[in-house]
């Protein structure tokens, strides 16, 4: 086992484990914290793929901004009673879990049977790609237009959020 494999296994276990914790916690606050852990492990996985920029952004935007927003909302709503929301096991949920498991099995089945002609990773190339320089170049040249459009998306989202969260529409 190389160091790399060990690191990957640790991160993968963290990733799956925290994900399971997210969907099983009764308290939303706990779920948020596990989700942050999940995002950190994901950032680590990005690093094993030499995607440094994405890894940093993952922590800054997701773990930093979005999750804080979640926590803020949970605190704001003051969901004390909601914490005791008991989860009932129903036929519908069983079916949902069963179907999900079936889909996962199918995907894993496909992956297990795919051939040996897989692309081989060129670490140096990947390192070059994942750099801020390379991503920045791509964003401001080939993807300039979609990049600018995201600004409109964000503006609309802000306006929409403000309108929705207002007490009364007038």
């Amino acid at each position: 086992m190389t160091v790399e494999t060990i690191v990957f296994v640790i991160l993968a276990v963290l990733f799956v484990g925290s994900a399971i914790m997210v969907i099983t916690r009764r308290s939303p606050v706990l779920a948020v914290l596990y989700l942050i852990l999940n995002f950190f492990s994901l950032a680590g996985l990005y690093l094993t793929l030499q995607a440094q920029f994405i890894a940093v952004i993952q922590i800054l935007v997701y773990a930093g901004a979005i999750m804080v927003l979640f926590l803020f909302v949970i605190m704001l709503l003051n969901l004390r009673d909601e914490e005791r929301l008991t989860e009932k096991i129903s036929v519908r949920k069983m079916i949902g879990v069963g179907l999900s498991a079936a889909v996962l099995l199918q995907v894993l089945y496909v992956l297990g049977f795919s051939g040996s002609d897989l692309p081989v990773r060129d670490v140096a190339r990947a390192e070059e790609l994942g750099s801020v320089e390379s991503i920045g170049k791509a964003l401001f040249t080939d993807f300039l237009f979609p990049f600018e459009v995201t600004s409109i998306v964000l503006i609309v989202a802000i306006v929409g959020a403000v309108i929705l969260a207002k007490k009364k529409l007038d």
Binding site: R92, L99, S100, A102, V103, Q106, V107
Partner: peptide, 16 residues
């Protein structure tokens, strides 16, 4: 959630 479950069943069928 019911809709999501049905959706999932559809995905399973397509994949199958």
């Amino acid at each position: 959630q019911v809709y999501a479950t049905v959706f999932l069943g559809g995905i399973l069928l397509v994949l199958t």
